[in-house]
Design a protein around this nucleic acid. Sequence first.
DNA 1: TAGATTGTTAATCGATTAACAATC
DNA 2: TAGATTGTTAATCGATTAACAATC
Lengths: 256, 256
Amino acid sequence: MATGRTHRPATRSRGIPEATVARLPLYLRALTALSERSVPTVSSEELAAAAGVNSAKLRKDFSYLGSYGTRGVGYDVEYLVYQISRELGLTQDWPVVIVGMGNLGAALAGYGGFASRGFRIAALIDADVQLTGRLIAGLPVRHADELEGIVEDNQVSIGVITTPAGAAQEVCDRLVAAGVTSILNFAPTVLTVPDGVDVRKVDLSIELQILAFHEQRKAGEELESSLTAPPVAAKAVRDGGRRPGPDGDVPAVMPA
Amino acid sequence: MATGRTHRPATRSRGIPEATVARLPLYLRALTALSERSVPTVSSEELAAAAGVNSAKLRKDFSYLGSYGTRGVGYDVEYLVYQISRELGLTQDWPVVIVGMGNLGAALAGYGGFASRGFRIAALIDADVQLTGRLIAGLPVRHADELEGIVEDNQVSIGVITTPAGAAQEVCDRLVAAGVTSILNFAPTVLTVPDGVDVRKVDLSIELQILAFHEQRKAGEELESSLTAPPVAAKAVRDGGRRPGPDGDVPAVMPA
DNA sequence: TAGATTGTTAATCGATTAACAATC
DNA sequence: TAGATTGTTAATCGATTAACAATC
């Protein structure tokens, strides 16, 4: 009955808001870069700029974790890297399986950002026997028949689904039945999971559609301002102007 | 100076909230499936279930588009498909370029969800001369030197970046200089763009880190409840219980 | 002490949700 | 007319932001 939820319900883990949790990886990435350059401390202003957020938001986010900064000085880079890593659960090892070894699965298998952050690929899985045994990113592809055994033997709790849409729900069911409780879904379909299982979804086509919406709006504004206002007004419209009248394009006719 | 924004500022296009825009593609997908099964009408309850949201939210979302439903009956599937497509700008053709032809770029090039939604791949681009001319998803890879010409000749306004992180900003700059005003960034780096350019970001590792956070929390709850409460209480804790005391793990020592 | 910067407050804004009058 | 379902209202909730007292 439960349909795929993007994240857990209202329960805020340890009181940390979801929006903050979603930004912690951004901060961690910026801090890791500073750490590699041996920068000892960083101010909220500098770190916020590096992470692409504003500094008030960053300080508020960090306040949920504790008081890890020093007034007048800033934040100790190494210390923050550790605290955020710990908060995100990256100080432990997370075995993951990737199911579906098309181009996308292969891209994920070869993505360096996993291993460096506590994620270990326990297995690459595909239903195609032609692929079984072939090496991808140095790992042999294993057949889907082995899925349950792999999950149980490696205590895998996180599964990544990169199969075609038609196969995703069945793969999801099998992963969950075998013990997986978190799923990252790249297949363009809504997954149904039992309570207690988290699903996050990455949808390539949806992101493009959202861009198209904004792109269309920009084009509409340009057209509009070129028709109704002198050219110099174009920027003002784009920067926050409102259309003067009510929406004018509610259709009058509804097709049979 | 402007750092990469995920979406435009407070200005809500035509009054449609960002959160609603982000769900329109979900509704469209569910509606397309119904359309293929020749279902003539659908209620907000049914459609919401198919899209994985609740029906109140769906009705509120649709109310921003106009009054497209019929009380007592529901929504005309074909009509809604058309209206949402139009709202998202999918009734027009959007030429896109994909820059960076690794596995991820290849996966996107072969993704069927694009062509069916008004996106047309104008070119696949890579800096590696070894790849130039090779066919990916039936299209020849073109060299990065041609980027500006391709964007201008095809009036490309949407660019997809699937290069390594180190190359992303330069590619972004060149795309923008050539006329691209919307960017979908898969490289794990914050892009800086001038005002008026939209950036959306898809970050594979960030999604996994968010899952790890919740996964860790589940494990912590199980441990906690097994230590402090009879086993039967575990579900209650997971379903919304709060830890009784304040956070107990604020560290006492800060390293030099 | 003077300057810098955090951590927190309070105001504002946007999103979600339940409930129900309107109406097919 | 009776039943079904939309579209909208109003309450609630969560996220953002500016400002500044606390404090290094």
